[in-house]
Structure formats: C-alpha cells, structure tokens
Amino acid sequence: MALTAYAVARLHNLYAVVMLAGIYSLLAAVMFVVLDAVDVAFTEAAVGAGISTVLALGTLALTKSREKTPRHTRILPLAVCGITGAALVYGTLDLEHYGDPSAAPHHHVGPEYLARSIPDTGVPNVVTSVLASYRGYDTLGETTVIFTAGVGVVLLLGSWRRKEDDDA
C-alpha cells in the first residue's frame, strides 16, 4: 500500500494514477479482511476499488489525462508533511498496542452490542444489527448524503444546462 501511494505521488500519467488508486483500494480491502472487518472489506472492494475507479476514468475521458509538471518548488509541502507526520508518530507512542484486548475502545459500547445483538434484534452479524438497528438514524442520514451528492452531480452535469447554452 505504501508503495502504491508513493507511486501515485510520483506519476504524471493520470490513467496510471487512477488505476493505482484502484489497486490501493483493493489492498486496503485485503487489509480490512486481515483486521477482521469483512463487511468493510466488502464495501471497500465494491465501492472504493470499483465505483470510484469507474467515476475517475469517466472524468478522465471528459478531461485531460496528463498532468503538467508543476513549476513551483516542493520543499515547503514536503517539510509540512514531514513535521505533521513526526508529530503524529509522537502521538502514537501513547496509543494502545495493536490488538490489545484491554484497549479503551473495547470497554465502551462495543461489548454491549456484541452481547445484546441476538436478544435485541436476532441478527448474528453484529455489524448489520448496529448499522440498521442501533444506529439506524445514522444510516438514514448517510442515505440523505448520497442523495444530495447524486442531485449535485446531476445538476452539475445535467443535460438541461447544455440546452440553455445552445439557445444562448
């Protein structure tokens, strides 16, 4: 994953960049399987690697597929990234280690969901029961976001605007 991300930063051919981004998403999905998040891996593979790549390729078809070599220096962004990264690494020193069962996130509502999923909802897949039942409003809001984004895309690219342009 790190290698793909680095390659994306270096390449100037946008087709290659978009395909690499797809590979990156797929690798992320593999990582989610390793980390026990099968539902997330499923979504990432379908949505991240699939739909995003198709959308980006469609955009490339409508625009240009080569990036121009930038004129200004890259030292400042590199320095900013380096400093931010170093600060973040310093921050991780206090975090619980990977897979530690006594870590703080595992002592809040997580175990509660695991214990009550079957009696409350009868769904063995806890991710599903939390998504659709305990946090149903969240999912409803998410649907609204997608709807808004869809409306936005249609308004931006819709054919009615082209007709107006033709008339003018």
Binding site: L55, H106, V109, Y113, A149, G150
Partner: peptide, 21 residues
C-alpha cells in the same frame, strides 16, 4: 469490536459521494 466497522462502512459510502461530486 464491531463499532469502528459500522462507522467506517458509513464513511466509505460518504467518501464515494464526495468523490463523485
């Protein structure tokens, strides 16, 4: 822990919506 999985499921889909826009 299932909770992060749920949050990220939502986030992935919202992420695609923003990318599309």
């Amino acid at each position: 822990n299932p909770l992060p999985h749920v949050l990220i499921l939502t986030a992935i889909v919202v992420g695609v919506a923003t990318t599309a826009l």
